[in-house]
């Protein structure tokens, strides 16, 4: 049986699935940040005209998905599969959006790594010929995440300095195997992450919980592909935030594969400016989703980037296991994107 695997854990995509289009919709605070020009829409109303934040988040997903499909020159009926997820219990934002889209749906949970997880699976489905066009969507909402993981909005407590700010927004990307359509970039390699848990229990320091998983996936990706950090214009991690990013740089230094800080950045650091009082930066599935589908795809289109390793990281904790004293399992999935030569 022929295989598309190289090395220990990397998948080559010989057909190089095409990223046709991406759309991003972000909330007010994100719209005040440095990437404001890269979002398709900025929604000032935290409820997005709905009665609850959960429905608002779902609408973020729906609007991002329909915008991405339209930008790809497709109709929802042409999509063979939609993959997506969010942070809510039972990923309801994704399910309720899929209810409106009528596309065969696979719901995913990878915490903040969801965008990379869905891109990895969509690229494999397309490359294997199991889908002609596939849709990847992920979202998060500050208000839904706070009430589920932390405290009510009006509760007066201090956020510790290592905390990150959940991004309100949704990003959606169309992956296609159709050779006749112009691509913004193409997916070439997938490295699926494994859980790495270094016994971090502090739910307010998720960057530290995820950084070892990011280092593990990076190390395996380089070993499998024979590439080095220098082969990428940009290594874009998910939402490690300030602490996690610094820890990742230190871990890779230790492993003799130092990352160039000017060519390795984190979605959580890109999305907010230091003056926005988010402490260690952004987080949430929506963070890497909007940075990738807005900012990064724009830079591919403009020819500014040739090869990017997108690696979203997830802190797979739940309030229940946290209260039981469990440490936080971290994960990171990587997908290599290349400009269409």
């Amino acid at each position: 049986m022929p295989t598309n695997r190289i090395g220990q854990s990397t998948i080559v995509l010989p057909g190089r699935p095409r990223i046709l289009a991406g759309a991003s919709i972000a909330g007010k605070k994100e719209g005040e940040g440095p990437l404001r020009g890269d979002f398709d829409q900025i929604i000032e109303d935290d409820l997005f005209g709905e009665e609850s934040w959960e429905k608002a988040e779902s609408r973020f997903q729906y609007e991002a998905a329909t915008a991405a499909i339209a930008k790809a020159g497709l109709t929802p009926a042409q999509l063979d599969v939609a993959l997506g997820g969010d942070l809510l219990n039972q990923i309801m934002a994704a399910s309720m959006a899929a209810r409106e889209l009528h596309i065969p749906f696979l719901g995913l949970y990878g915490a903040c790594s969801t965008m990379a997880e869905s891109l990895c699976i969509a690229s494999m489905l397309v490359d294997g010929g199991y889908a002609r066009h596939a849709l990847c969507t992920a979202s998060s909402h500050f208000c839904t995440a706070e009430r589920q993981y932390r405290f009510p909005l009006e509760y007066g407590c201090q956020r510790p300095p290592t905390a990150q700010w959940t991004v309100t927004g949704a990003g959606s990307i169309v992956v296609s195997g159709d050779d006749t359509r112009p691509a913004l970039c193409r997916a070439t390699h997938v490295t699926i992450g494994r859980i790495v848990d270094m016994a971090i229990k502090d739910a307010n320091n998720m960057g530290a919980a995820m950084a070892p998983a990011a280092a593990d996936t990076l190390t395996r990706h380089f070993a499998d592909t024979g590439r080095s950090p220098a082969d990428y214009d940009l290594i874009l991690t998910g939402d490690l935030g300030r602490v996690g990013h610094d820890v990742l740089l230190a871990l890779m230094q230790e492993r003799g594969m130092p990352l160039d800080p000017t060519r390795c950045t984190d979605c959580g650091l890109e999305i907010f400016a230091p003056g926005q009082d988010t402490h260690c930066g952004g987080s949430g599935c929506g963070c890497s989703a909007v940075v990738l589908s807005g900012h990064i795809l724009r830079r591919f289109r403009e020819g500014d980037l040739r090869r990017v390793l997108f690696m979203a990281t997830g802190a797979l904790l739940s309030p229940t296991t946290s209260q039981q004293g469990e440490s936080i399992p971290g994960i990171a999935h990587a997908i290599a994107l290349e400009a269409d030569a």
């Binding site: 605070k29 935290d46 500050f142 208000c143 009510p152 909005l153 009006e154 309100t168």
Partner: peptide, 10 residues
């Protein structure tokens, strides 16, 4: 709670 709605922080 019956009168006021919570708001996201700025």
């Amino acid at each position: 709670a019956l009168v006021c709605k919570p708001r996201p922080k700025a």
